[in-house]
Structures are given as structure tokens and as C-alpha cells.
Design a protein around this nucleic acid. Structure first.
Length: 424
RNA sequence: GGAGAUGUGGCAGAGUGGUCUAUUGCGUCUGAUUCGAAAUCAGAAGUCCGCGAAAGCGGUCCGGGGGUUCGACUCCCUCCAUCUCCGCCA
């Protein structure tokens, strides 16, 4: 959520920011609602002030044993009027809030202008390029080695719910553990294991709701949602809190399963692991002082990159353009790995600085120099496993048809160096 | 899941319809005293919203929401959380 003061003090800043994003918001209506609302508020406060005086008068009379009936009759009308004005105010306030929750964040000045992913800027490309014969597609390769079972997953849940089998399951677990261990032993994160069901307030807090309701799985009877990312529970852990400034920055890392309906986003480029309803991800979340978020953002990107380097993958870092950034982001970097069979770059991480956008929604503050103010929140995948797996499967095929396990994962695979080809 | 109880400021803990501007204690901050500290004494302090150039003024907040009333911390409804007992269960 944007600072509500901006709507009356610097509407041009909002207008320009949204324009750069290509976002359409009926700002005129919002400005008018705000003006109307404040007008009613002034009237309401006056009325309440009068009522306070009147009831005090009645109290005094009662105390001294006088008959206050006449005053009570008169004050009744005041109460009725307050009710009318209060309803009006609540209606205006509700309408303004409902609209405010749908306004995306304003991009930082440094964000490149653009409309689509084609306008994103490649900041750097790194890692060893794949060289050798064109490898097998990861789905065919996985099937040969018996690592995953999409068909049976579809049978019990639907398409987009793969089953990890045998060494495929162990490889998944290895990736998760490797990611987490890196964060908690080298990058200074506290490991968290949060609930994967959250309430509506949490989903609003990080910005998934109300705009993206159709992307979420719901548990209707209980009013709960399956988390689309650990960002939701981790960030909302501190909702409605004033964080001790000395405790900042707070850095959490968590592995959770992530659930996404991915409504309407299926197509030929989403085969196999590239788009799933259920997948595994390790997420990094940070809370910082406002002045420190930019620095923290760069570091988060570095942590995610470090994992790709250790896995010996070929990757690049994109600076997202204004039109391609997520709803709540003020600035965002994507990390993509190259899949040599598909000959495509695949997004494995998105690292965003939300500034105070989420902190306002979730009401997360700190006290700095005597002033209570909103913190900045950031998060980034570190990493999501499925597309990392795609790149690994396509890159690490041996001449004999086996899978070469990256060195850093070998300790997590019981020392195994290779998943051998299945015997005929 | 059933029965009962509780929810008040940073913490503890009073308050059962109007002297609540929320008693009191602890803690915090600022002074005084001291070489400095402790102790003691005096004083101060919260949130959010609005109006205002400012000083300041008004409103709001006792778990959340709603209701009754001229007036609600107090009465009613509802939701949430915690505790105790019972039941069930990895």
C-alpha cells in the first residue's frame, strides 16, 4: 500500500509511477473519496466533541441529583446524527481502502522503463557455458532414469503435481538442504519452518490478496489459503509489531512447499517442471531500516547467485523493467539459468525490494530516532527447485546416459557421484 | 470436538453504567543530589486520524467486529487467542 498522504500531497508522483508501470488506476475517484472522507471526518469529530460535552453535563446533573431528562432527549438527536455520519464515513473509508489495496507499488527511479519481459535488462551473465552434444530433454532423461513420475501424480492430484521417485526424491531433498544450509551457515539467516496454511489477513499483508485471489488454493471451510510462497508466512510473522531497531536487519530463510493454481497460464512452454501447481522453494526474507534496504537487496541477489555458482550453472541476472515487476515490488531482479536442451533461459529466482509497501499493509514498524516508522521488507527465492532441476538434468548428462551429481550436492546424496543409467 | 475461565498501557495488576483525564506497583526518560553510580526526591511520557503556517485544538484506542444506551473498560451478541478439565489423535 502506498502512503495515503501521497493521494492528497503528491498525486503526481503516484500518477507518474503508475504510468511508468503501465498500471491503470482510477486516481480521480480515489482523490475525491479522500476529500469527501475528510470532510465527513471533520463534521464527525465536531459532533462527537459536542456529545462528549453533553454527556458530561448529564453526568454532572445526575451526580448532583438534578433531573437530566430534558438534556437526554436533546442528546438523543445528536447520537442519531453521529450514527448517520459515521456510516457515511465508514462507507467512504471502506471504498478508498478497497481501491488502495489494488494500487501497485511505485517503481524506484533506477528501474528501467518498459512494458514486457522483452524490455528487461540483462545486468550480467555468469557461469560456465554448456558445451557438448545437444542433451536430452529433461523429461525424457528423467523418465529414463526413473527419477520422476508425472503420470501417477496426475492420477492422484492432477497435472502439475509430480511425484519424485527414489534418487529423484533424494535429489530434491538434497537441493533443499543445500540451499538452507548455505543460508544459515554462510549468509546469516535464521531458519524458520512456518505454517503452509495462512489466513486472509496474511495474504493481504504481502499483497497476494485481494488482487490475485484466483491464483490461490483455498481451504474454504476454514477461510485459509495454501501459501504460494514462504514469503507470506515469513513476512507476516511480524505483522502488527514494532520491531526493536537493534534487532534489524532480521533475516529469515525457510523451505516450504508452494502451491499455485496458475490459472490460465498453461501452454506449450510449461511442460514438465517448468510450471507446477506444487513445488519446493527456499525463500529468503528480510526486514530492514528504510535506509538500508537498497544495500540488503544487492546482497540478497548475491546470495541467490552464490547457489547457482556452487551448482556450476550458467545463469544471468536481469533487472526487471517497470512493466514486468510484481505488484508489490519497487525494484526487482530475476535470476535465470540456461537449459541447454530447451535452449531457453528459465527463471529460478526473483529478488524484490518492497520498501514499505508490505510493511504498511501488514503494519510492521520500528522505532528509529524516537520516531515510529514502517520497516522495509525484501525477499528472494534462494532458490525454487524445479527449474534448477531442469537445468541440472539437461547439463549434467554423462556420455553413458547417467546423471552427474554436482559436487556440492554429493554429501547430501550419501556421497553418490552419479545417478547411473537404468539397466535394460 | 465438549465444558468452564480469562483477555486492560513496556510488564504486573485494580476497575461491574457517568468524578476514568484508566488506581497502584515495577520498568523507561528528564532533572535535582553525587567525583561518578546506587539510593532518594521532583517531573515527564503511549497509538492512530483529522483541522491548523505554527502554537495548539478535536477525535480515537481497555483482544477484533457489531449491538443496547444521552453515555460502555463495565451490559448483550459474535469472532479470535490463551489457560484448566474431559474426549480424540500422529
Amino acid at each position: 500500500m502506498l502512503d495515503p498522504r501521497l493521494y492528497r500531497e503528491d498525486i503526481d508522483r503516484i500518477r507518474q509511477g503508475l504510468e511508468r508501470r503501465g498500471a491503470k488506476v482510477d486516481l480521480d475517484t480515489m482523490v475525491n473519496l479522500d476529500i469527501e472522507k475528510r470532510k465527513i471526518n471533520v463534521r464527525l469529530d465536531q459532533l462527537k466533541s459536542e456529545r462528549n460535552a453533553a454527556t458530561e453535563k448529564i453526568a454532572q446533573m445526575k451526580r448532583s441529583g438534578q433531573d437530566a431528562q430534558e438534556h437526554i432527549e436533546k442528546t438523543r438527536a445528536l447520537g442519531d446524527e453521529i450514527k448517520v455520519q459515521q456510516d457515511k464515513f465508514n462507507d467512504l473509508e471502506g471504498r478508498f481502502q478497497a481501491m488502495a489495496l489494488l494500487v501497485p507499488n511505485l517503481p524506484q527511479a533506477s528501474v528501467p522503463d518498459g512494458r514486457t519481459s522483452a524490455d528487461n535488462v540483462v545486468r550480467r551473465e555468469s557461469g560456465r557455458k554448456y558445451e557438448g552434444p545437444k542433451p536430452k530433454h529433461h523429461l525424457d532423461f528423467s523418465r529414463e532414469l526413473g527419477l520422476h513420475d508425472f503420470e501417477r501424480g496426475a492420477k492422484i492430484a492432477g497435472s502439475g503435481f509430480p511425484i519424485y521417485v527414489g534418487l529423484g526424491a533424494r535429489l530434491e531433498r538434497a537441493l533443499i538442504n543445500f540451499f538452507l544450509d548455505e543460508h544459515i551457515t554462510h549468509n546469516g539467516f535464521t531458519e524458520i519452518q512456518p505454517p503452509v496454511l495462512v489466513n486472509q489477513a496474511a495474504m493481504i499483508g504481502t499483497g497476494q490478496l485481494p488482487k490475485f485471489a484466483e491464483d490461490m488454493y483455498t481451504i474454504g471451510d476454514d477461510g485459509l489459503y495454501l501459501v504460494p510462497t514462504a514469503e507470506v508466512p515469513l513476512t507476516n510473522m511480524h505483522s502488527n509489531e514494532v520491531l526493536d531497531a537493534a534487532s534489524l536487519p532480521i533475516a529469515y530463510a525457510a523451505y516450504t512447499t508452494c502451491f499455485r493454481r496458475e490459472a490460465g497460464s498453461w501452454g506449450k512452454e510449461t511442460r514438465g517442471f517448468q510450471r507446477l501447481h506444487q513445488f519446493d522453494k527456499v525463500e529468503m526474507v528480510q526486514f530492514t531500516e528504510p535506509s538500508k534496504s537498497e544495500e540488503a537487496h544487492q546482497k540478497l541477489v548475491g546470495y541467490a547467485e552464490g547457489l547457482l555458482q556452487k551448482l556450476d550453472l550458467h545463469y544471468r541476472v536481469l533487472e526487471l523493467c517497470t512493466g514486468d515487476m510484481g505488484f508489490g515490488a519497487a525494484k526487482c531482479y530475476d535470476l535465470e539459468v540456461f537449459a541447454p536442451a530447451e535452449e531457453r533461459w528459465l527463471e529460478v529466482s526473483s529478488v524484490s525490494n518492497f520498501e514499505d509497501f508490505q510493511a504498511r499493509r501488514a503494519n510492521i514498524r520500528t522505532k528509529l530516532e524516537g520516531k515510529t516508522q514502517f520497516v522495509h521488507t525484501l525477499n528472494g527465492s534462494g532458490l525454487a527447485t524445479p527449474r534448477v532441476l531442469v537445468a541440472l538434468l539437461e547439463r549434467n548428462q554423462t556420455a553413458e546416459g547417467g546423471f552427474r551429481i554436482p559436487e556440492v550436492l554429493q554429501p547430501y546424496m550419501g556421497g553418490l557421484k552419479e545417478i547411473p543409467p537404468k539397466k535394460k
